[in-house]
Amino acid sequence: MKTNNIIEITNLSFGYRNQQILKEVSVAFPANEFSVILGRNGSGKSTLLRLIAGLLPHCKGAIRINGIELNNLSSAHRAYLVGFLQQSHKPVFPFTVKDVVLTGRAAFIGYLPTKEDHIAVDDAMERTAITHLQSRLYTELSGGEQQLVMLTRLIAQQPDILLLDEPISHLDYNNQIHIIKLIKQLVNDGFTIISVLHDPNMAFLFGDRFFFVDDQKVYADNSSEPWKSPLIHKVFHNSIVPVPHAGKMLFIPSLQ
């Protein structure tokens, strides 16, 4: 089976002044699937997403989206292709939810939002079922609701690829499940989603493809049973134990 890769990264290296983060990474992400990136804190997962999102400039290696090098795209054109969701967003001003979602349309907006932008915002809010929150103040929402609003903003942006950096890390369990199911739904609707997750259960229960970041490299796992991948030990060492469940594998912390 030949998969259609929407993102192709070749020989990508990136580092800060005195610290190499990624070294000669070559990896490809498939279209219309839910790719999960696993890795330890500080392994470079967020950096990888930010590079793909064009938020960090890369000079060594290539990142191609639909065959086009990212550096050759204008920032607006890039925003039509990729959108990025931060781990959490710290608000300063009490914007209404609708105003926050509307900012997702910036690439389409010359000076002021038009009717079309408002329609896109309404659609996005319906999709994530937050229409009832639209006049509430973003600053007064719970962490879960805020994350839902920022995800809605990303949907209003309508990029082909959604990059999510630990989207559920500081949410309660109900909200984690709610958001991850929403992500699944978005993949069914045709979006390509690449997400960093820490919880192996969430990853293997819901993800389609798995990528492991370790020691400045990114490894793809293409097996049908990714939970058997030896790469898991690179990320989790021996701290988790697999438990079979409903044809999938659950992981529990090792008690030894």
């Binding site: 999102a53 938020l55 920032s75 607006a76 925003a79 710290k90 910036a106």
Partner: peptide, 10 residues
């Protein structure tokens, strides 16, 4: 909303 939030929407 922030620099990164502005950059990510184009």
């Amino acid at each position: 909303l922030g620099d990164e939030e502005a950059a990510s929407v184009g």
